[in-house]
């Protein structure tokens, strides 16, 4: 995983509630056995006026001019400002893959679905949770809005100098900052895992 660096980026506001992973990336693209190629299909059913198919030339498809990510300068947004329960529904990691490939590095929302939250961090995508009222404050700032994201300091800084602190789990923060491979980390506990298995094989032998 690539290490996360502090940055200043443009915000695309999409404040509707309960945006589910079926909307973030529709099912037909999940047939791919690769980890890439999803960015052009991010929010496919909102972004295009027709039904997309994997493998087609998406640049030739009719775009929905009303959809924010089709409008300059938001087509280059790096921060998504979303509504409550963002990423609910299916566990598909294709959703963060598509968001990252589009260019998003950070999402700000009042709440996220649990599985999506996990999946995003595994792909270097920083998910920031702010109070609903703070998200409303950001939405009320003059648009287009750029925000400075400082992960080490755990703070967002707006152009007017206003700052918003956020909380983040220490381990997730460390993984992002250092671009850590958490499988490698877990494998450092190999002897602990083996000891656990040995002990459990005595207690619940039918599981081993």
């Amino acid at each position: 995983m690539k290490a996360f660096n502090d940055f200043t980026g443009l915000v695309a506001p999409m404040p509707q509630a309960n945006i589910d992973t079926d909307q973030i990336i529709p099912k037909q693209y999940l047939k791919s056995i690769r980890r890439s190629g999803f960015g052009v299909s991010l929010f496919d059913e909102w972004r295009y006026l027709d039904e997309g198919q994997p493998g087609q030339d998406h640049s030739k498809r009719p775009k929905n001019p009303d959809f924010i990510l089709n409008q300059a300068p938001y087509d280059h947004a790096e921060i998504l400002l979303a509504g409550v329960n963002f990423g609910c529904g299916s566990s598909r990691e294709h959703a963060p893959w598509a968001l990252v490939e589009f260019g998003f590095r950070c999402i700000i929302a009042p709440s996220y679905a649990d599985i999506f939250y996990n999946n995003s961090f595994k792909n270097g995508l920083l998910l920031i949770q702010l109070a609903d009222s703070q998200v409303q404050q950001l939405l009320a700032l003059p648009q287009p809005l750029t925000l400075q994201i400082q992960l080490m300091q755990q703070v967002i800084i707006a152009p007017n100098g206003q700052s918003f602190e956020f909380k983040i789990d220490t381990f997730r923060k460390q993984c992002l900052l250092e671009g850590l491979d958490d499988i490698g980390l877990t494998l450092k506990n190999r002897t602990d895992i083996e000891a656990y298995e040995k002990q459990q094989a005595g207690i619940t032998p039918w599981l081993f």
Partner: peptide, 12 residues
């Protein structure tokens, strides 16, 4: 779980 965690569980 997501695909990264599928890999994590397979490996560890």
């Amino acid at each position: 779980i997501g695909t990264s965690e599928v890999e994590h569980v397979l490996a560890t």
